[in-house]
């Protein structure tokens, strides 16, 4: 059994429930290949560094698992068929040092997941939505009003 790490990016257009279902589907696909999943890390919605299929954002998930080498081809085949996935990447941990890191990372994530995973997700989504909406309107409105006021004052002064 080799140690693997699979990262995939889901479409931002999916609802929370749909993304959950998709993630579970992929997990079940991995389990079907006689693999055992160690942990799954939900990185949440992130801005993509460059647009992928005209999407600016994506939902990142990382699955750490142990599987045989043959299983990867089938898992990747199923990922390619799935149209909700923008990108995916499997990484194999080969050396002893890498595997030591693998256990370290997985332990850290499992610790992080146990206390309150639901709260974190909520906070992230709120922050992103707030950042998108609020500043744009403020920036557009504020300077215009100041300028117009200044101009008005200037004109009134001149007249006076």
């Amino acid at each position: 059994m080799n140690h693997y790490e699979l990262l995939f990016v889901l479409r931002p257009t999916l609802t929370d429930e749909e993304t959950k279902i998709e993630i579970e589907k992929i997990q079940s696909n991995i389990i079907a290949q006689d693999a055992n999943i160690v942990v799954t890390d939900d990185m949440g919605m992130r801005k993509l560094a460059y647009p992928v299929e005209k999407n600016e954002r994506g939902h990142y998930t990382v699955v750490y698992f142990q599987a045989l080498g043959i299983a990867i081809a089938e898992i990747e085949r199923l990922l390619r068929i799935n149209e909700e996935i923008l990108k995916f990447l499997t990484v194999k941990y080969t050396n002893k040092k890498d595997i030591a890191q693998f256990t370290k990372i997985t332990e850290a994530i499992s610790k992080k997941n146990t206390p309150a995973p639901a709260k974190e997700e909520v906070v992230v989504t709120e922050e992103t939505s707030a950042i998108e909406e609020t500043p744009v309107t403020e920036v557009e409105e504020a300077p215009v009003t100041e300028e117009t006021q200044a101009i008005e004052e200037a004109t009134t002064n001149k007249e006076a």
């Binding site: 990016v9 460059y50 994506g58 990108k87 990447l89």
Partner: peptide, 25 residues
């Protein structure tokens, strides 16, 4: 290179898409 493949880091930043604070991404 792996980070680029998974759209965590851009491949290039050219004059067409200039970002003010590149490391803000």
């Amino acid at each position: 290179k792996r980070a680029r493949q998974t759209a965590l880091i851009p491949y290039v930043i050219d004059r067409k898409k200039v970002v003010e604070n590149p490391f803000e991404i």
